[in-house]
């Protein structure tokens, strides 16, 4: 059985159930790297070029941690997810960067996902990928259908039940049912957090920010809890035709939650993120217009969580004192 390694980083949070179903149906074993930890971060930082962002460095660390544990590694090049929208160059060039920086890496399967080039190009690339595992075209078709079904189920689970990707993955792939998220019995206020899934859900990278906010008495809303169609519509209302694929989810969620009058909005971003720096300012302006408190947090390789906690506490205090909620 071929073992396919999938790094638990970057696009993992968006697409893992889909990938797992695809490779599973093709008869391969899926090996996932451990959640980010210090060793993984150090491995990644030791290889990465200095001006990539922290999530990319972490991704490289995950790839290195998978060497010896799998026969191939899956690193798709997700170039475009719609007409005239593209991804960040670091995402597009990810397979090539990985190959160049980690020469000892096992073979990398890197289908280009580029919807700008139309459906046929996509089918071709996925078929090519499937041929590595089987020569039966019907088997590949079945794998694609399973993958798509899993993906829809995953997306719906998050938006219908209001759970995080990590929980949805746990439920879909490990059969866990118990929800640990949102155990706050009587939240004092509601805060939406927007940002790339690989920043919001990597607890090592963001110093457990979501659970810290919950412990401070806030109910947390996340981009994945908004239905796809509402995200697209909100992003379009805010900026017209967005250029960046993944930013649609971020600014769409920002606009959606602002319109639904959350008590506060937090943007969690990493130092040096180009697309965020351009697109999130639209959300920031909108928050100012609607007079909803907005906090921008920029994360990097800091190991002390002190500064982050101070800002979060002050932000929640500001909201509470505004609304005269005394605790």
């Amino acid at each position: 059985m071929i073992r396919v390694g999938i790094p638990q980083a970057l696009l993992y949070y968006q697409y893992f159930p889909m990938w797992k179903a695809f490779f599973g149906t093709l008869g391969a074993e899926v090996v996932v790297s451990a959640p980010t930890n210090k060793t993984i971060l150090n491995l990644g930082v030791s290889r990465a070029v200095a001006d990539t962002c922290l999530p990319v460095k972490i991704f490289l660390g995950h790839v290195i941690s998978l060497i010896q544990k799998c026969d191939c590694i899956f690193v798709p090049a997700v170039t475009s997810l719609g007409k005239k929208t593209y991804n960040c160059s670091k995402i597009i060039g990810l397979p090539n960067m990985t190959r160049a920086l980690i020469p000892e890496c096992p073979i990398i399967f890197d289908p280009e996902i580029n919807l700008e080039k139309g459906r046929y190009y996509l089918y071709q690339n996925i078929y090519k990928l499937g041929r590595n595992f089987t020569s039966n075209p019907f088997k590949i078709k079945e794998a694609v259908e399973d993958a798509w079904k899993s993906n829809l189920a995953y997306q719906n689970k998050m938006s219908d039940k209001g759970i995080t990707p990590l929980e949805a993955i746990d439920r879909a792939c490990q059969g866990k049912q118990q929800s640990t998220f949102d155990s706050n019995p009587a939240p004092l206020l509601t805060v939406a957090v927007i940002g790339h899934p690989y920043v919001i859900y990597d607890d090592y990278l963001n110093h457990r920010m979501i659970s810290r906010l919950q412990a401070m008495g806030a109910k947390i809303l996340l981009p994945e809890m908004v239905p796809r169609s509402a995200l697209d519509a909100a992003a379009r209302r805010l900026v017209g035709e967005p250029h960046w694929s993944f930013e649609i989810d971020i600014i769409g969620a920002g606009e959606y939650y602002l319109e639904n009058k959350v008590d506060g909005l937090i943007n969690l971003s990493v130092f040096g993120c180009g697309p965020d720096s351009m697109m999130v300012s639209f959300v920031e302006h909108r928050a100012k217009e609607l007079k909803i408190p907005f906090l921008h947090l920029s994360l990097d390789e800091h190991t002390s969580e002190g500064g982050l906690v101070t800002r979060l506490e002050a932000f929640l205090d500001m909201i509470k004192r505004r609304q005269r909620i005394w605790v």
Partner: peptide, 11 residues
């Protein structure tokens, strides 16, 4: 009389 926004030095 109400704090509406704040900023801190970043990196």
């Amino acid at each position: 009389g109400v704090v509406i926004d704040f900023g801190m030095n970043s990196v």
